[in-house]
Amino acid sequence: MKFIVCVKQVPDTSGVVAVKADGTMDRSRMATITNPDDLNAVEAALALKDQNPEAKVIVVSMGPAPAEGMLRELLAMGCDEAVLVSGREFGGSDTFATSQIIAAAIAHIGLDEDDIIFCGRQAIDGDTAQVGPQIAEKLDLPQVTYAIDLKLEGDKLIVRRQLEDGYMTIETSLPCLVTCIKELNVPRYMTVKGILESFSKPYQVFDYNELKDEPLIELDTIGLKGSPTNVYKSFSPPLKGAGVILDGSPAESVEKLFAALTEKHII
């Protein structure tokens, strides 16, 4: 039994946001973190492993070499193995190409009948929420998105989904893919012992040569060339001015509001 968790290293949006002249993000100038929703996915896998100690948790990430630091941290939280998918050929991939490559990497690891793939709902840099579902499609697996609760019962996974207007509970067979939301759990911390062990746990890098024989990997479906998405332009939205809070009694406030709206010729 394996729990494969897909994770992404993203810019820390609480720090400096740097944009290159071509409109893409200058990641080298920004501090990075593990995508928050992905940490919930890691926690979901680790919690399930706590109940099924024979299971193995493998974290998979696509990104440049420095993503190793993030993967070591996830190993220090208790994950068993890490795979970094990294190569020049993969650079510039949009969600279509990325999910193609990650699906190939998962196929390369090998998917068994009782495996579960966990993803975060979406990454805070692109906010697309597409990669998880696309991986499932490319591997032809059942997928359950927006998990707020999950339970393994025999060879079935029972997942409660959080939707905008309610909840939905789904039972699925394995192997399957689940995307996790932050309300699902509180990710654990690393431990000191885990940190010490994290450098002796299995760590692999899958480059283009390693994956090129996987059926999903075609040079025209990966990387910048294989990406249907093109960045036309990126810009910072103009800052909204500070709001005004009207105080006083409701009657006074209405009067002030009326005056303000009239002044702006809204009414």
């Binding site: 630091g69 070591r72 941290e73 220090a76 911390y189 690393m190 431990t191 000191v192 940190i195 010490l196 994290s198 450098f199």
Partner: peptide, 15 residues
């Protein structure tokens, strides 16, 4: 070392 940096990060996050 990388490990001590990770520990420092852990302690800081926890606190």
């Amino acid at each position: 070392s990388q490990q001590h940096q990770m520990m420092q990060k852990l302690y800081r996050q926890f606190a």
